[in-house]
Nucleic acid binder design. Structure first.
Lengths: 345, 345
DNA sequence: TTGAAAGCGCTACCAT
DNA sequence: ATGGTAGCGCTTTCAA
C-alpha cells in the first residue's frame, strides 16, 4: 500500500494525495474528502523511509549512552526516559546508541556518515572527547549533556557539579567541619577525564581552598559495596574527616552502611551530603541530604536546543548549567571535636 | 557525497561501487582497489535511508518501553541495555518507543504503518494487550518480553514468575512457614492485567493451595517507601504471617526497613524471599535471598528470535520461559511458633 | 485547483 | 568483469 494506490483509488494524482497529507497546498474540498476517505479506510501512512529520503530528514535523534556493563544506571536511565519523551513531543524518534567512553566510537560515526539520524545527544562526555571532535569536524548537529570543561564552540547542557559540590562543602563548613572528603566517581573515570568527575574534583578543591578546609578525595567504584572500601580510603588519607560529600550515587547506600558498620552514626559522628536522585538519597539509612540531578528539564532543553541546531546550524552555541536545591534529610550536623569521636574499629 | 561521486572519481559505474561495497559480485582486483581507495579517502558511507528504501529493510528494531512517570525502573533498564547491545551485535539499531500500558498506542501504530522499523519488542505486556492484537492483525514481526498468560500464536520470552514464586513458597514451606504473604506489583497493574502480576499471583495461590498454606497478597505501589504500607496491609490480612515473597523490587528495601522499624528481625521473626536484581536484593539490610530476572539472556534470545521472524514470517512461534536460581542471602529461616514472636507495635 | 515528472541515493536485474 | 537503468515511495517544482 503506497501513495500510488491511494491516488488511483481516489482518481487523483500522487502529488494531490501528498498535498492532502501535508496540507502544503489548497485542495478542493470535494477532492480532499474523497482522498481522505480512501486514506482512512486503508489506514494508509506514508513510508517514513521514502519520506526521509525525499526530505533529507529522518526525524530521528540518536542518544549515545555509555555501555555500563550492559546495563544502565539510574541517573542515565532518567535521562534516557526524559529525552525519549521530549523528542516524542516534537515527533522525533530516539535511537539508542551504546557507544560512550571511548568504546564503539565507530558505531556513532556510522550513524553520522550513513545519515541515519538528524542529530545526536552525547552523554557522559570527557573533557577531551573524541566524539565531540568527530562531530565538530563533520559539522554534524549535536549537543552534549555534561560537557562544561572545555570551551569548544558547541551546544551543551550540564549539571552544575562544580557549584553543587561547592555548596555542599560550604554547608559542611558552616557546621564547623574542617576536615572533609569527596567521594568521587571511579578512578578510571577521573583518569579518562570524565567531565563530571573532573568538575566535581575542581569544585571540591577550589571550595576547600577558599574556605581553608582540609579536603581529601576518594574515587569509588560503582559496584555495590564499594562504599566500604572508599570509606577506608578516606580515613586512611585523613582520619580526622567529619564530613563527606558524595557525587557517586551508586555507592551512596554502601557508604552509609559502611559508616554504620564502623560504628559511626550520621550525622553525629559523620556528616554526609550528596548529589544523587531522591530515589537513592531518600532510601539510604539514614537518608542523605542531597541535590537531585535535574534530568527532566535538562533533557527537555537538550532536545529543544538540538532541534533548533538541526534547523539552523549558524546560530550561537547554547550553553546552560542546571542546578537543583539540596533537600535536607538530616544527614548534616555540627562537627564534634575530632578527639571526642568514639572510634571502634 | 553519494555513490555517484565515488563512481565518477573512480571512473566506474555506480553499480560497480555498490557491488564493491556489498561484495555481492566479483570485482577485478584493480578496480576494487581503486574504488576502495576513493571510498576510504572520502570516508564515504552509503545513506542508510536510501539503502532502506531500496532494500525494503530499515535494520532497525523498536523497543516499546513503559512510560513509568518519565523514568524507567532498574529491571526495565537492564532489558533496555541488553537489548540495544544484542541488536547492535547484529548491526541493528534500536528505537526507543515510550508507549506501554495502554498509553500512546498510536505511537507504536505509527512506527508500524510508516514502516519505520523491521520489528518490535514489547515489554510489560498485559494478559490482553491491545498492542499485541494490533501487531498480530497487521502481521507485523514482533516479540513480547513477558507474555505468557494467553495462547495467542506469537513469539515470546518470559521470566517464569509462576515457577519462581512457587519455588519461593516451597522454600518457605520447607522451613515450616504456614502463613505467608506475596508482595505483588501495584494494584493498578494487577487490575489492568499485567502478565507479571497476574502470573505471580497465580503461582502464589496455586502453590499455597498445593501445600496447604495460608497465603495473603498485598499489592504495593512502586514509590519508594510504599513498603511500610504493604507490610501493614499484610499483617492486617493475616497477623500470623511469618514469611514473605516479594516480586516488587522497587519496594523491597522499604519493606525491609519497615520490618526493622516494626521490631521484626529477618530471618528470626520474619523470612523474606524475592525476585529481584542482585543490585537491589544484596543492598537491603539485611540482604534478601532472591532470584534474579535473567535480563541479558532473555534480551539476547528475544532479539535473535525477532530477527529470525523478520526473515521468515511463517515458522512456528518461539516461546521460552527463563528462570534463575535463588541466591541464598540468609533472609529465610525456620518458622517460629507464632505465639513465640515478640511483637512490639 | 490539479497533474506530470524529476529527483532523493541506493540496489539489483538485464545487458554486454 | 563491468555498465546501464529501472525501480523503492515520497516530495516538490514546473506546467496547465
Amino acid at each position: 500500500m503506497n501513495i500510488g494506490h491511494i491516488a488511483q483509488q481516489a482518481g487523483v494524482s500522487r502529488s494531490t494525495v501528498s498535498y492532502v497529507l501535508s496540507g502544503k497546498r489548497q485542495i478542493g474540498a470535494a477532492t480532499r474528502a474523497r482522498v481522505m476517505a480512501i486514506i482512512d479506510q486503508a489506514n494508509y501512512r506514508p513510508s517514513a523511509t521514502a519520506r526521509a529520503l525525499s526530505n533529507g530528514s529522518t526525524r530521528t535523534l540518536a542518544l549515545a549512552v555509555p555501555r555500563l556493563h550492559h546495563h544502565l544506571s539510574i541517573e542515565i536511565m532518567q535521562f534516557v526516559g526524559a529525552i525519549a519523551e521530549a523528542a516524542a513531543e516534537d515527533e522525533f524518534d530516539t535511537l539508542l546508541s551504546p557507544s560512550g567512553g571511548g568504546e564503539r566510537q565507530s558505531a556513532l560515526e556510522r550513524l553520522v556518515m550513513e545519515r541515519r539520524v538528524d542529530g545526536i545527544i552525547l552523554m557522559e562526555t570527557l573533557i577531551s572527547d573524541p566524539r565531540v571532535e568527530m562531530l565538530m569536524a563533520q559539522g554534524f548537529p549535536f549537543i552534549t549533556i555534561g560537557r562544561a570543561g572545555h570551551d569548544t564552540e558547541h551546544d551543551w547542557v550540564d549539571t552544575n557539579y562544580e557549584g553543587l559540590v561547592r555548596e555542599a562543602v560550604e554547608r559542611l563548613a558552616a557546621q564547623g567541619h574542617r576536615h572533609i572528603a569527596l567521594v568521587n566517581r571511579p578512578q578510571e573515570m577521573l583518569d579518562k577525564g570524565y567531565c563530571l568527575s573532573v568538575n566535581a574534583k575542581a569544585g571540591f578543591e577550589a571550595a576547600c581552598a577558599d574556605l581553608g578546609l582540609h579536603g581529601v578525595m576518594a574515587c569509588c567504584d560503582e559496584d555495590d559495596g564499594a562504599g566500604e572500601q572508599s570509606l577506608r580510603q578516606i580515613l586512611d588519607l585523613d582520619p580526622k574527616v567529619t564530613g563527606v560529600v558524595s557525587v557517586n550515587d551508586r555507592s551512596l547506600a554502601a557508604l552509609m552502611d559502611a559508616l554504620a558498620a564502623d560504628g559511626r552514626s550520621v550525622p553525629d559522628d559523620m556528616s554526609v551530603i550528596a548529589v544523587a536522585p531522591p530515589r537513592v538519597a531518600a532510601r539510604t539509612s539514614p537518608p542523605v541530604t542531597a541535590a537531585d540531578v535535574p534530568a527532566a528539564p535538562m533533557a527537555a532543553k537538550a532536545v529543544q536546543t538540538l532541534l533548533a541546531r538541526i534547523g539552523d546550524v549558524e546560530t550561537e552555541p547554547v550553553r546552560e548549567l542546571f542546578s537543583t536545591p539540596f533537600v535536607d534529610r538530616g544527614s548534616v550536623g555540627p562537627a564534634k571535636r575530632p578527639a571526642a569521636r568514639n572510634r571502634r574499629r
